[in-house]
């Protein structure tokens, strides 16, 4: 439970990084969303055994992390936290796909290992892209950006409320877990019946809290649309940002930057 609270606290901290006012924080959220979508699209569009052409894509998150003054350690930590999902997706590839693909010296590497590494690379790139978006833009501005790009208002409102609800749920869960641990004589496993009761109570309490929040929103004129005072203003620099990002991703995707760079280096050495 304490770990869940820590993770949520960190997400909140990451979100708050967006209010620092750095160069990356000033980019219009719509521009950031377009760039992130193009980035993820380019990364996932490669065939399953691709590795070398994925590596140059790390330039984008690295540059954005630097511009947004986001601590590298925070992004690395989240990648680690989320990595079990990617590992679970690809862990059986080396066992099932044993065809020899590359030979490095006397070691042969199977295509299963290559596809597994490719999955990990794509995962790292996509997640770091999303983290960069959150840290540079902030959750609320990202949602405002989604609305600005034409996403249904209802969906955007749901996203915004979901973010708040996750914290409410965690808060209630933390209180219940604390109450349980105080009376459980150190027993970590509550048992099925107690666990079922805890889960049921958690849902009811979170639902009640949600209702009270909704009442508070209604009392202040909420009509189904969540309005914010963060007005979106598309500036020429946002257009430039999207054009530069799109050109960069296209160059990486449709050209072989790794090979070209390698050949250049080899030629210089000759």
């Amino acid at each position: 439970m304490a770990m869940l609270n820590t993770v949520l606290g960190d997400i909140d901290a990451l979100d708050r990084l967006s209010s620092r006012g750095g160069i990356a924080n000033r980019i219009d959220p719509r521009a950031m969303l377009i760039a992130t979508a193009l980035f993820v699209l380019a990364v996932v569009s490669y065939p399953k055994y691709e590795i070398e052409n994925l590596l140059p894509f790390f330039v984008y998150p690295i540059i954005m992390i630097s511009l947004g003054a986001v601590p590298f350690g925070v992004v690395a930590r989240y990648l680690l936290i989320a990595s079990p999902f990617a590992v679970m997706v690809g862990i059986f590839n080396p066992l099932l796909d044993t065809r020899e693909m590359i030979v490095v010296g006397s070691i042969s590497i199977s295509s299963g290992w290559i596809s597994f590494i490719s999955i990990l690379l794509r995962f790292s790139l996509s997640v770091s892209g999303a983290l960069v978006l959150l840290a540079c833009t902030g959750y609320v501005r990202t949602c405002a950006g989604l609305a600005g790009l034409g996403a249904p208002r209802l969906l955007v409102t749901q996203f915004l409320l979901l973010y708040r609800f996750v914290f409410i749920l965690a808060d209630e869960a933390y209180r219940m877990a604390r109450a349980h641990s105080l009376r459980s004589r150190g027993a970590r496993n509550p048992g099925v019946s107690v666990f079922a009761s805890l889960a049921g109570h958690l849902l009811i309490r979170a639902y009640d809290r949600g209702l009270r929040l909704h009442q508070a929103m209604l009392a202040r004129g909420f009509d189904g649309t969540l309005r914010t005072n963060r007005e979106l203003r598309w500036k020429p620099v946002d257009t430039l940002f999207v054009v530069v990002c799109a050109s960069f991703f296209a160059a990486l995707r449709f050209g072989n930057v790794s090979r070209t760079l390698g050949e250049l280096v080899m030629e210089t050495q000759r």
């Binding site: 979100d15 609320v140 909420f222 005072n229």
Partner: peptide
């Protein structure tokens, strides 16, 4: 419970919530 009343990411946005709805 003020926790039931405050739901936006910052105090400023929470205070602006009502006027914006107006």
């Amino acid at each position: 419970d003020p926790n039931d009343q405050l739901f936006m990411p910052t105090v400023e946005e929470d205070v602006a919530f009502g006027p914006l709805n107006m």
